[in-house]
Computed example of a mutant assay.
Amino acid sequence: MRYVQLRAFHQVAMSGGFSRAASELRLTQPAISDQVRKLEEEYDVLLFSRQHRQIALTAMGERLLAITHRLFDAEDQARELLSESRRLRLGNLRLAADSVHHVLDVLGAFRESYPGVQLTVSTGNTETIVAQLRSYEADIGVLGDLAPHRDFEFIPLNAAPIIAVAAADHPMATRRSLSLAELADSPLVMREAGSRTRRLLEQRAAETGVKLRYAIEVEGREAALDIVASGAGIGFVSAAELGGDRGLARIAIEGAPLLMEEALICLSERRENKAIKAFLDVARGRSAN
């Protein structure tokens, strides 16, 4: 087994094809194909299934990719450590967030300190964010629906209660608070089944013997708020995630607050990556102030 063979395999897996991998590594496609073929032949394994000019990782290929992720990330860290400049001037940092509102101040502070680092922000639910972190498709996650785990480094961000929201002209818009029983009698706009907001509300409703009925079920926070703003029903959101540009009325939910806790997370094995460490340090500094 040679380094060039592992590098070829890793790049093909990450690029999704031999041609793209060859372009990324500035080699010819036959050269890339030859390195992967030799690796498979040497160990009598099949790393890619090849059908109709499409490739996909086999089970063995998936296991090897998990290892090469760590291998080449460690290589990047070693290169950074040995670099002449210890200041982070260039690079990329990928964030995956269930809601970017919780990290806006950290993003701003990080940009001030490291203007040369390009930030990419994507959104998703807990399942997709964790999968992206494990596959190295994201560097840092922003979410709250994950119990402490040895595989991840956690930095708490904030906690905010779930509130009900309604259009300004909705009959309930003037109410300061509503019970779950009252909400159950109103048309509700609810997030998709995988939503943490929905799960917390349903847990509280079950505890109090209330059955919530949804007039509209919609995927995504922004789509749900748009529908609420149209007057179609009452929706729910974390108080920290509601901007003031929709003119929605905020209505407290009676009883003990249903708190949405958010945290920054990254794979523990990647916490010394220069860009990741810098972002986490900025976040720690903000939380200490």
Rank of each mutant, 00 (worst) to 15 (best):
R221V: 12
R221S: 14
E222V: 05
E222T: 03
E222H: 13
E222Q: 12
A223E: 15
A223T: 12
A223L: 09
A223K: 06
A223S: 11
A223Y: 07
A223D: 14
A224V: 03
A224F: 08
A224I: 01
A224G: 12
A224E: 13
L225D: 00
L225E: 06
L225Q: 09
L225A: 02
D226I: 05
D226P: 14
D226W: 04
I227C: 13
I227N: 09
I227P: 12
I227Y: 14
V228Y: 06
V228I: 05
V228W: 06
V228L: 08
A229I: 10
A229L: 09
A229G: 12
A229M: 11
A229D: 02
S230F: 10
S230H: 05
S230L: 07
S230G: 05
S230T: 09
S230N: 10
G231I: 06
G231W: 07
A232M: 11
A232V: 03
A232S: 04
A232N: 09
G233K: 05
G233N: 02
G233V: 00
I234D: 00
I234W: 05
I234T: 05
I234V: 15
G235T: 11
G235H: 04
G235M: 12
F236S: 11
F236V: 01
V237R: 12
V237F: 05
V237T: 08
V237W: 03
S238T: 09
S238F: 01
A239G: 07
A239L: 14
A239Q: 13
A239D: 09
A239N: 10
A240I: 00
A240H: 12
E241R: 14
L242P: 06
L242A: 05
L242R: 08
L242C: 06
L242D: 05
L242G: 07
G243A: 00
G243D: 00
G244C: 03
G244H: 04
G244E: 12
D245H: 10
D245I: 04
R246M: 09
R246W: 01
G247D: 06
G247N: 10
G247C: 09
G247V: 00
L248C: 08
A249Q: 02
A249Y: 02
A249P: 00
A249S: 10
A249M: 04
A249N: 06
A249I: 03
A249T: 00
R250Y: 04
R250N: 01
R250W: 04
R250E: 01
I251H: 06
I251E: 00
A252P: 02
A252E: 14
I253E: 05
I253H: 14
I253W: 02
I253T: 06
E254L: 07
G255Q: 11
A256T: 11
A256I: 08
A256L: 12
P257Q: 00
P257D: 03
L258E: 07
L258V: 07
L259K: 12
L259A: 05
L259G: 09
L259P: 10
M260L: 06
M260C: 11
M260D: 08
M260W: 00
E261Q: 12
E261Y: 02
E261G: 13
E261S: 11
E261C: 02
E261P: 04
E261M: 04
E262D: 14
E262S: 11
A263T: 11
A263K: 14
A263E: 12
A263P: 02
L264F: 03
